[in-house]
Design a protein around this nucleic acid. Structure first.
Lengths: 153, 153
DNA sequence: GCTTGACCTCAAGTTAAGTTGAGCTTGTAG
DNA sequence: CTACAAGCTCAACTTAACTTGAGGTCAAGC
């Protein structure tokens, strides 16, 4: 069971579950990295699987590739991330994630509360922007809006 | 203080915090509704503010307009939603929201665990697809992927 | 040694969710 | 009654995140 050190793009695609074209795309965006064989074919180190896993999971919860890319820059290119590398990435995202979680809960509970309150009075609906007052200060549904996730850069 | 019954598109834009063009867009997609004056201008009932509030909040947490639209179809066009209307919408989304919340927590805690585990062992990393085995059954990062939100239709 | 499947590059197409602009109409304030 | 802000429609542009396709290369089996 000697470990296969290098993976082809097709192997990475199969194992990570993303399309080959997406891997090309991520590479063009600098999210993952490969080196080439004599015949110009990509070869990936094992760490690429972990990177792709992070990309997928982060995307799944609504983090953009740009933000993911910024965060991944804190991981050293080419070597397996260490505990400290993860630490940096994790703490950079933690606040943003906590905020998003809070927001989802607000939406969920807001809807639930609406059942309770009957929502017949627009002034009492927890989903509504309080008194439209916030509108004067700019755009957006203030009460529940999240700030962008913090960057590591 | 006689209540102003009808709102112009500009007023809705100001009070809801979304652009006029976005309101046009939502209307074209059937998410909101208006009637027209003799001069072909849009007039909105008050319920549009609540609808837009829902749209914004739902979008904020990553629900697509298509899904929002499907859910909003359960709300009667033209009248203020009743307790039961909200109930339908709320329960339709609740499970999806719960799932998304769980996923965010997984990402957050996954990253945190990675700090603990050091992630030196790829087989132990909580973010990683277990043993690549799931990959055989299709695409996607199985372990943490959410199903689409349920429809009301 | 040739066929076949996996790769390569680069350009163009796709979907979502709007925005921007052109050209024209409405409505309100002086 | 006229200016001009606010509306209207429709088409085209934008960004993100990919996919698809054309046209050509690499490598492993028979």
């Amino acid at each position: 069971m000697a470990p296969i050190t290098e993976l082809t793009v097709g192997q990475v695609a199969m194992r990570s579950g993303v399309a080959v074209s997406a891997l090309h795309f991520y590479e063009a965006r600098g999210l993952i990295r490969s080196h080439r064989t004599a015949g110009n074919q990509r070869r990936y180190g094992r760490d690429v699987l972990r990177r792709v896993a992070i990309i997928k999971v982060a995307q799944e919860v609504g983090i953009s590739l740009a933000e993911i890319g910024a965060a991944l820059e804190s991981l050293p290119e080419g070597r397996t991330p260490t505990r400290d590398d993860w630490n940096v990435l994790s703490t950079a995202w933690r606040d943003g994630l906590d905020h998003k979680i809070a927001q989802l809960k607000k939406l969920r509970d807001g809807l639930t509360d609406c059942i309770g309150c009957g929502c017949m009075s627009i002034d009492k609906c927890p989903l509504r922007n309080k008194g439209d007052r916030l509108a004067r200060e700019g755009t957006g549904a203030r009460r529940l809006v999240a700030p962008p996730l913090s960057r590591t850069s």
